[in-house]
Design a protein around this nucleic acid. Structure first.
Lengths: 221, 221
DNA sequence: ACTTAGATTTCGCCG
DNA sequence: CGGCGAAGTCTAAGT
C-alpha cells in the first residue's frame, strides 16, 4: 500500500464531473488497484476514488488513474509532496489469482494441521451425495472434521459447508462431524454465521503455507 | 490526520460482532473523529470503521473507539507499530460536483421543453401529501404533466412517479395529469414499466442541456 | 432528533 | 454479464 500526503488538485470525470481544489490530502493506493483521496475531515467516505480494475500512470507532478474498461478518470495534479511511503502489507492479501483455491487445497492437504491442532488428512474431495467436501480430516480424539476451502470466506461458503455437514452427519458414525472454514480472508458476517453454527474459521496465509515466510505467531502457543 | 501502520487485531461490536485477525493494516484517524481500518486489498471499503461522533481512548498497545451516543465499539489491539505519523492538513476547500440529480433538475426547470414539446414550468418541487414532484408543467393544451427527474431511470423511479400521479389525480382539476420520467439514462425494464403505465420516458444529455453541445437529432423532427 | 432520499453508492448473489 | 437487494450502508437535506 502506497500512502502519499500531498498538496494536490484532483479532477474526476466519468459518471459525473468533480473538482477538488488544491489542498493537503492523503492519497491511498492499494495493491488491488483501488485509489482513494481522503481529506482530514469529511468522515467515512473518500472525497474522490476509483474502484478496481484501474490503470495508474504517473508522470512528473501528475498521477492519472483510469478505469480499465470505462470512461472514468481521475487526474491528480501534485503541487507539493509532503510524504510518500509504501508499505508491504503481505502479498497474500494483495494477490488474487484464479488458481488460488486449488493451490490452497493442495497446500492444506499436505499440511492439514493449519486447519486445526492435530488434524490429519483422511482424504481430499470426500464425496457426499450433494458434492465433494474439500478435505476430510480427523483429530487426535479421532473426531471427524470437514474442511471447506475458499479464497474468500463468505456467507455462501458457510452455507455450503453447512449443507455438507447436514449430509455427512446422517451417517451415524459421523454424527458428530465438525466443520472448519479455511480461507485467505473471511468476511466478518461469514464469521458471525459460522460461529453461530459451531463452524470454526481459520484464515491461512498462502506465503506461510508455501514456506516462503515464517508465521507471525507460534501456532497453538 | 493520524496514520498508523500496524500489525493489529480489530474487534467490532455493535450492530454486529466482527473480528479481524492480527495482520498488517492501515489505521486512519481523521480530525472529525472518523476512524477507518484498511487492509492493502479489499477495494473501496474499510475492513472496519467508526463514523463520528466518536470517543477515542488510547492506552499501551490498545486503542478503543466508542460511538458517542451508542453501543458501537471498536477495539484495536496493537501488536507491532510499523509507522505512526500525524499530518496537519488544515481544511480542504469544499468539493465541487456537477452532474448530480440537483443540477439536472435546475437545468430542466430552465428548459422544460426538453421533457416534452411545448412544456412550460409551473413550479419546481410541486408538493403532494407524499412528497414533492420534481417539476410540474403544463403543455400547449393546458394539460398537466408531472416530471420525475433522475440521473438513472429505474423501476423504482417509475414506482415513485406512479405514486405521485395517484395522489395528484385525486384533485378533480388534475385528473388527467400525465407523467414524464426524465433521466440521463433509463433502464430498459424501467422503460417497459413506464410505457405500460402510460408514463413517457425522456433521456436528456447533460452537455446539451448546458448548451455545451448541439443535440444529435433535431427535437420533435 | 427523526425521517427520507441520493450515492461516481459498494458489494454480493443469482439468472 | 446485467438486474436485484442489502449494507454496521453513509450523508445531506428537510421537518
Amino acid at each position: 500500500m502506497r500512502l502519499v500526503v500531498a498538496r494536490c488538485e484532483v479532477r474526476y470525470s466519468g459518471r459525473l464531473s468533480a473538482v477538488l481544489p488544491e489542498a493537503l490530502r492523503l492519497l491511498m493506493f492499494k495493491s488491488d488497484g483501488s485509489v482513494m483521496v481522503h481529506s482530514d475531515a469529511g468522515g467515512y467516505k473518500p472525497e474522490n476514488w476509483m474502484t478496481p480494475p484501474t490503470v495508474i500512470e504517473e508522470s512528473e507532478g501528475e498521477i492519472v488513474v483510469r478505469k480499465l474498461g470505462g470512461e472514468d478518470r481521475l487526474d491528480i495534479r501534485l503541487a507539493e509532496i509532503v510524504s510518500d511511503v509504501t508499505h508491504d502489507m503481505g502479498e497474500a492479501a494483495a494477490l488474487q489469482k484464479d488458481g488460488v483455491e486449488r493451490e490452497l487445497q493442495e497446500l492444506l492437504a499436505d499440511a492439514p494441521e493449519w486447519c486445526g491442532e492435530g488434524f490429519r488428512l483422511v482424504r481430499r474431495e470426500w464425496p457426499t451425495d450433494i458434492g465433494p467436501v474439500d478435505l476430510m480430516c480427523r483429530d487426535a480424539q479421532e473426531d471427524w472434521i470437514a474442511v471447506e476451502i475458499k479464497r474468500l470466506g463468505t456467507i455462501s461458503a458457510v452455507e455450503q459447508l453447512t449443507r455438507y455437514l447436514e449430509r455427512i452427519r446422517l451417517d451415524p458414525s459421523m454424527g458428530s462431524c465438525r466443520g472448519v472454514l479455511a480461507a485467505q480472508s473471511i468476511k466478518p458476517q461469514a464469521r458471525v454465521l459460522a460461529e453461530a453454527r459451531g463452524i470454526d474459521c481459520v484464515e491461512v496465509d498462502l506465503a506461510v503455507l508455501r514456506g516462503e515466510r515464517e508465521p507471525d505467531l507460534t501456532l497453538f502457543a
